[in-house]
Design a protein around this nucleic acid. Structure first.
Length: 564
RNA sequence: UGGGGUGUAGCCAAGUGGUAAGGCACCGGAUUUUGAUUCCGGCAUACGCAGGUUCGAAUCCUGCCACCCCAGCCA
C-alpha cells in the first residue's frame, strides 16, 4: 500500500503478538482482543510511555480489537486533572483514539463491594498493626514473615471495622485491609498484601467521598476484568505481582480473567525516563518545563519538532521483548530524519552569518533565482529567491587557510551559491582585532542558476541569503541533555548535564518567507538540519526556530578524524 | 543460603531441531547544485560458559556464570 510516498512496512512480530496469535488460534476470549493503556495521572508522558501506547493501541488496531484509556488514579496524593488532560492530549497527538475512557476511581464503589465479598469469604481482614510493625512482620527476602495477631479476626468484626474505616471513624494508618494469603510465601507480594489504606485526602475526582483508597494490586486486576480486557500488558517490574493479580481474580466472581504479560520498559541513552529525575530537572530549573525540547517527554519531543509518525516508527523499530536494554539515541534520530527528509520543505538559513560583498555585481541590482522546495519531490514546488550583491553565508563555510579536504570557500577558491552563481573569494576584511568580518568575492554572470556552460566543476555548494532580503531570527540548537549514556545510574547526575545542550543563536538570517509560518511548521534548513517554528515563542515579529536534529555530517567526521 | 526474570554483533532484534533475517551504528564505493538523500558492497564459522542428547542444536537436557526486579499503607 502506498501511503504518502512511503511503503507501509509490515509489523514485525514480537512475543506478545505470538501469544495473541496462539490465543486466537485456540479461540480464547472468543477471538476478541482488548487492551488498555493505564497511566496514573501524576506526571507527563514520555517516550517510554509511547512504547506502551504504541504496543497497546497498535495491537488493538492490528487485531481489530479495542484499546481503552484508563487512569489508574487510586492514590489521591499527587494526581490531578491537569495531568489527565495532558495525557489525553499526548495520546491524541500521537495519533491514537481510545475505545473507552475509564478511571479506576469510577470503580471505587464496585471495588469496595468486592472487598466486602473477600472479607465474607474469610480471605481479607482488617489489620491494626502499625506501618513499622507490618514491615517487620513481613520478613525479608530470605526470611519468611509472620502472621499478624489480628489475622484471625472474625468475619463480623472485619466487616464492622472495614465499614468504620470507610465511614471515616479512624485516623490515617490506624488500620488497613489485607488479603489473607501466605505470610511465608517466597513471593513477598503474597505475604498478606495490603488492599486498602485510610487516607483522609480529597481525590481530584471523587473529592471527599472516600477516605479509604484501594491499592494498585487490588485495583488493577479488577479494573481490567470489569473492562473485559483480554491481554493486560505491563512492564517487567510487575512480574512478581502477577501471582497476586491472578489470586484476586480467582477469589472473585468477576466478568473475566485477563492475562497479564510483562515486557521490558524503554531506556534511551543520554537521557532519563525516571519521574523522580524528570521532576527534579523541571523543578530546579535545569530545563524550561515539561515541554523543554531537550526532554524525552512527548510534549518535549513535540516542541522539538518530532512528528507523531517518527515516534511511532521508532517504537516499531525497537521491538518488544523481556530483555532490558538501552536504545541508542541514533535510532530515534534516524526515525525523525527519515520522516522529515521526505516531507520537510527545504529552506536556506544562515545561523552564523558572514557578510559577503560581490564586487562585480552591479550596485543596487537585484534579481530572482528559483529554488526547489524538495530535491526529489517536484510536487512540493519551487520558490523565488532574491539575489543581490551583498549576501550572508555561513561563517564555517569559509576558511582563510583551508584544511585538507575542505572544499568550500577560501581565498582564490570558487564555490557555488546554491541556485544562484559561482563566486570566487578575492579578499578578506578584518576588524581591529583581526577577526574576519567580511569577505569580498566576484561572481561569474554566466553561471546563473548554479551551473556553468563550460562544464567547469566546483566542488562545494553553499547556502546563502541576500542581506537585504532576509529576516532576522532566533534559532535554538538542541543537543543531548546528558554527557553520559546512563545518567540515571549516577548519584550526581546533575554533574553530567551537557552545558551545550541548548545554544540560542539570536543573529541568524533566514529566508524572508520563513517568518510568516505558523507554529510547528517543519523545514530542512539546507546543509544544517531539520528545524521547526517553536510552538510557544515563534511569532512574525520574533521568529523562533528549534533544531530538531542535525543532518548526517560526514564533514564533521572527517574533521574529527583528521584531528583539526 | 528466598522468589521472579533475562543472556544472539558496538546498540536493538528475528529465530520455536535442518545449518544465524532486519534495523541503528560503523567501514568502503557510485550518483549528487545539500559533505544531505539515494544506491551498491562489507560487517557473528557464531547465539553467556561447560558438558550431554541427535545424522543435525541458538533452538532439547544437565550444571555453572553474569546481569535485572521484589522486603511502599507508590504505581
Amino acid at each position: 500500500m502506498i501511503f504518502s510516498g512511503k511503503v507501509e512496512k509490515p509489523t514485525v512480530s514480537n512475543f506478545i503478538r505470538n501469544i495473541i496469535d496462539t490465543d486466537l488460534a485456540q479461540n480464547k476470549n472468543q477471538g476478541r482482543v482488548a487492551t488498555r493503556f493505564p497511566p496514573e495521572p501524576n506526571g507527563y508522558l514520555h517516550i517510554g510511555h509511547a512504547k506502551s501506547i504504541c504496543l497497546n493501541f497498535g495491537i488493538a488496531k492490528d487485531y481489530q480489537g479495542t484499546c481503552n484509556l484508563r487512569f489508574d488514579d487510586t492514590n489521591p496524593e499527587r494526581e490531578s486533572m491537569e495531568y489527565v488532560q495532558s495525557i489525553k492530549d499526548d495520546i491524541a497527538w500521537l495519533g491514537y483514539q481510545w475505545n473507552a475512557l475509564h478511571f479506576a476511581s469510577d470503580y471505587f464503589a464496585q471495588l469496595y463491594d468486592y472487598a466486602i465479598e473477600l472479607i465474607k469469604q474469610g480471605k481479607a481482614y482488617v489489620d491494626s498493626l502499625s506501618g513499622d510493625e507490618i514491615r517487620a512482620y513481613r520478613g525479608t527476602l530470605t526470611k519468611p514473615g509472620k502472621e499478624s495477631p489480628y489475622r484471625d479476626r472474625p468475619v463480623e468484626e472485619n466487616l464492622k471495622l472495614f465499614e468504620a474505616m470507610r465511614a471515616g471513624e479512624f485516623e490515617d494508618a490506624q488500620h488497613v485491609l489485607r488479603a489473607k494469603i501466605d505470610m511465608s510465601s517466597p513471593n513477598i507480594n503474597m505475604r498478606d498484601p495490603i488492599l486498602y489504606r485510610i487516607r483522609h485526602v480529597s481525590h481530584y475526582r471523587t473529592g471527599d467521598q472516600w477516605c479509604i483508597y484501594p491499592m494498585y494490586d487490588y485495583t488493577h486486576c479488577i479494573s481490567d476484568a470489569i473492562e473485559d480486557i483480554t491481554h493486560s500488558l505491563c512492564t517487567l517490574e510487575f512480574e512478581d505481582n502477577r501471582a497476586l493479580y491472578d489470586w484476586v481474580l480467582d477469589q472473585l466472581d468477576v466478568p473475566g480473567h485477563p492475562q497479564q504479560i510483562e515486557f521490558a520498559r524503554l531506556n534511551l541513552e543520554h537521557t532519563v525516563m525516571s519521574k523522580r529525575i524528570l521532576n527534579r530537572l523541571v523543578d530546579e530549573g535545569h530545563v524550561s518545563g515539561w515541554d523543554d525540547p531537550r526532554l524525552p517527554t512527548i510534549s518535549g519531543l513535540r516542541r522539538r519538532g518530532y512528528t507523531p509518525e517518527s515516534i511511532r516508527d521508532f517504537c516499531e523499530r525497537i521491538g518488544v521483548t523481556k530483555k532490558q536494554g538501552t536504545i541508542a539515541m541514533s535510532v530515534l534520530e534516524n526515525s525523525i530524519r527519515e520522516d522529515l527528509d521526505q516531507r520537510a520543505p527545504r529552506r536556506m538559513a544562515v545561523l552564523d552569518p558572514l557578510r559577503v560583498v560581490i564586487e562585480n555585481y552591479p550596485e543596487a541590482q537585484t534579481e530572482m533565482v528559483t529554488a526547489s522546495n524538495h530535491p526529489k519531490n517536484p510536487q512540493m514546488g519551487q520558490r523565488p529567491l532574491t539575489f543581490s550583491g551583498v549576501i550572508y553565508i555561513e561563517r564555517s563555510d569559509f576558511m582563510e587557510t583551508p584544511a585538507k579536504k575542505f572544499f568550500r570557500l577560501a581565498p582564490g577558491r570558487e564555490v557555488r551559491l546554491r541556485y544562484a552563481y559561482y563566486i570566487t573569494c578575492t579578499d578578506v576584511i578584518r576588524d581591529n582585532e583581526g577577526e574576519v568580518i567580511e569577505i569580498r568575492c566576484t561572481y561569474d554572470p554566466a553561471t546563473k542558476g548554479g551551473s556553468s556552460a563550460d562544464g567547469r566543476k566546483v566542488k562545494g555548494t553553499i547556502h546563502w541569503v541576500s542581506a537585504d532580503h532576509s529576516a532576522n531570527a532566533e534559532i535554538r540548537l538542541y543537543d543531548r541533555l546528558f554527557l553520559v549514556s546512563n545518567p540515571a545510574a549516577k548519584a550526581d547526575f546533575l554533574e553530567h548535564l551537557n552545558p551545550q545542550s541548548r545554544i540560542v543563536l539570536t543573529n541568524c538570517k533566514v529566508e524572508q518567507g520563513l517568518v510568516d509560518m505558523e507554529p510547528e511548521a517543519r523545514f530542512q534548513f539546507e546543509r544544517q538540519g531539520y528545524f521547526c517554528t517553536d510552538r510557544q515563542d515563534h511569532s512574525r515579529s520574533h521568529p523562533v526556530f528549534n533544531r530538531t536534529v542535525t543532518l548526517r555530517d560526514t564533514w564533521a567526521k572527517i574533521e574529527k578524524t583528521s584531528g583539526s
